[in-house]
Amino acid sequence: MSTFLFAVVSGILFGVFFSLMAIGLNFAFGVMKIVNLAHGDFVMLGAFGAYYALSTFGINPFATMIMEIVVFLVVGVGLYYGIIPRLLRSDDPEMLSLILFFGISQVIEALATLAFGTNPVTLPTNALGQLSFQLFGQAFESSWVISFLVSVVAIGLLYVYLYKTKMGIATRAIMANRDEAAASGIDVNRISAIAFGIALVLAAIAGTLTPFMLGGIYPSVGVNLTITSFSIIVIGSLGNPIGTVVGGLVYGLSLLLMQTYLSSWANMVPYVLLILILLIKPSGLLGKGARNA
C-alpha cells in the first residue's frame, strides 16, 4: 500500500512538472499551428543555463530562471520574426514546421555539443532549497515538491495571461481563427511573436528544473523531451494549453505506477495511453469535438 501511495503522489508531482515542460509546445501549436520539434532542445538549453550559472558562478537556480525568462523571450520573438511568417505562407505550414524545426533541433544539439561536451552533468538536488513534505507518513523529495510548486505557479500565470489580459484575449482569438482575428484588427504577428516567446520561456523554466528532476543533462537529451512533451499534449488535447495539465498528470501517474508494478513495460505506457485516448476521443481528453478531415 505504501508503495502505491508513494507512486501516486510522486506521479502527481512528476506529472505537473511535465505539464509545464509540454505546455509551451502546445501553446505554440495552438497559436501558430506549427509543431516545434526543437522544443526539448530549448528545455535542454535552459537546463545547461541553470547548470553553468550554479556550478561556475554560484547563482541560485531561481535567479537563473528570471534571467532566462528575459533571454528566451527575446530569442523567441526574434525567431518568430525570422522564420514563422515566411513558414505560414507555405501550402502546408503544419507539416513543413516539423522539418524546419527538426533542422533547428539538429543545429542546437550540434552547437550545444561543441559548447558543453557530451558528458552528462547534474546539480545537487538540495540546490533548489529544502522543503520537507510529508504525506501518508512518507517523505517526498524536496526538489520534486519545489518543482511542482514552480510548475503550478507558471501554469497559473499562463492561465491569467490568456484569460485576464487584453493580449491574452487577443491570443485566444488567434487560436480560434487566425484570419478572423486579423480581420477584426488584431496585430496577429505581434501577438503571435509574443506567444512564441512565452512558449520558449515556459520551456526554459522547465529547463532550469530539469537537472533536479531527471538526473543527468546532456546535449542529446532534447529529442526525448520533445517526444515525451508531444505525447502529453496529445493526451490532453492539442492546441488547448490547459488540457496539457491533464495530459501531464495522466503521464506522470501511469509512468510511475507502471515503474512500480511492471517496470520493464513502463516507458511504453504513455504511448499506449496516447493511442487509446486518440482512438476513443480523437481530440484528446479535453478537446472540443473531433478533428475529422
Binding site: W144, L214, Q259, S264, A266
Partner: peptide, 19 residues
C-alpha cells in the same frame, strides 16, 4: 526488475527497492 534504457527517473524505483 528491468527498466527501459531510456529511464531517467529512479526515485520511485529506488523507493520500491528500499521497501
Amino acid at each position: 526488475n528491468a527498466v527501459p534504457t531510456s529511464t531517467s527517473s529512479y526515485t520511485v524505483i529506488l523507493h520500491n527497492m528500499a521497501a
